[in-house]
């Protein structure tokens, strides 16, 4: 095909988009909302996964032992916890060790305090589970074991993290599917309108011997462009939002929220959003290709 053909197709595409601009903006807008949602959802998901990984690295659960428990009871408890099939590793930390760690963390502040005489800290088992999500359930179970004073697992934090992600996942997915279908429908409707407006040109093209592809390219491109713009804008918005979040976390020194770096996340998002956007656009165009667009 010659340059003139390319220029023609591009010109027709842009003309079609312009003549039909309100419908185009609407369709592109729905693609945008869909992908913006998907993007946000992915952002949350990626980071939750990342944070969970980090949580996994740390001690997940601390089972404090009753002061009254004797040596045999402590050993029995340790065996029981280690014997649980969802537990990966157990480590005993004595009250002296706890005090040592505390003194290290606090630096010189406890100087002169004779820990050997009066140690208020409880001995504990530090437990690592196979699956971080099992922590909540296991904590309840272990709490009932004899000799257990209390169980801690970054209470609420882990619990809420999983709860929230799951709810977001279900609602988000349903919404996105609905929006995606709407987007495809709107795109195909928009293109059908352009086809109607260009009825005469298309008829002439068929008579003078234009190929199917030549007739269809402008409409395919129209859908593709709507999808592409619908993907690019959310990427821009998410880039800004996520960048700000990172900054906010940084400024507020919320070190425990260990966010993924901006570039990593944006690259991951682009891998999904751009093909998805163009996919929705092309699907919309394909659905609009009726018999009329055949030679």
């Amino acid at each position: 095909m010659f340059i003139s053909g390319f220029i023609y197709i591009l010109g027709e595409t842009l003309k079609g988009l312009y003549r039909n601009r309100w419908m185009c903006i609407t369709s592109t807008g729905v693609v945008m909302v869909t992908l913006l949602m998907l993007g946000l959802f992915m952002l949350v998901n990626l980071n939750v996964r990342h944070i969970t990984e980090a949580v996994k690295e740390q001690v997940e659960m601390v089972v404090y032992i009753n002061e009254e428990a004797d040596r045999a009871a402590v050993e029995e408890l340790g065996r029981k916890i280690l014997g649980h099939r969802e537990v990966a590793r157990v480590e005993y930390v004595s009250s002296e060790e706890h005090m040592g760690r505390l003194q290290q963390q606090l630096g010189g502040m406890l100087e002169g305090y004779d820990s050997a005489l009066d140690n208020p800290l409880l001995a504990s088992f530090e437990v690592r589970t196979e699956d971080p999500e099992a922590v909540v359930r296991l904590a309840d179970e272990f709490e009932a074991y004899p000799g257990v004073a209390a169980v801690f697992y970054g209470q609420g934090y882990v619990e809420n993290l999983f709860e929230v992600t799951r709810v977001v996942q279900v609602i988000g997915l349903a919404l996105m599917v609905g929006l995606a279908v709407t987007a495809v429908f709107l795109i195909s409707h928009t293109i059908k309108l352009t086809v109607m407006m260009r009825k005469r040109e298309i008829t002439i093209m068929k008579y003078v011997g234009a190929t199917n592809w030549f007739i269809r390219w402008p409409f395919l491109l129209e859908g593709l462009l709507m999808g592409l713009v619908g993907a690019a804008l959310p990427l821009g918005i998410l880039n800004y939002l996520y960048g700000s979040s990172i900054e906010w976390v940084d400024v507020n020194e919320l070190m425990f929220i260990n966010l993924l770096p901006l570039q990593t996340v944006m690259a991951e998002l682009a891998i999904y959003l751009v093909p998805l956007g163009t996919g929705l656009g092309i699907l919309g165009s394909m659905l609009s290709m009726g018999r009329f667009l055949r030679v």
Binding site: M1, I3, S4, G5, I204, M205, V208, F214, I215
Partner: peptide, 14 residues
């Protein structure tokens, strides 16, 4: 020109 362009003629031919 339209009839020529959509059937693949070059600009110069048109």
């Amino acid at each position: 020109a339209f009839a020529m362009i959509v059937t693949g003629s070059s600009r110069r031919e048109v």
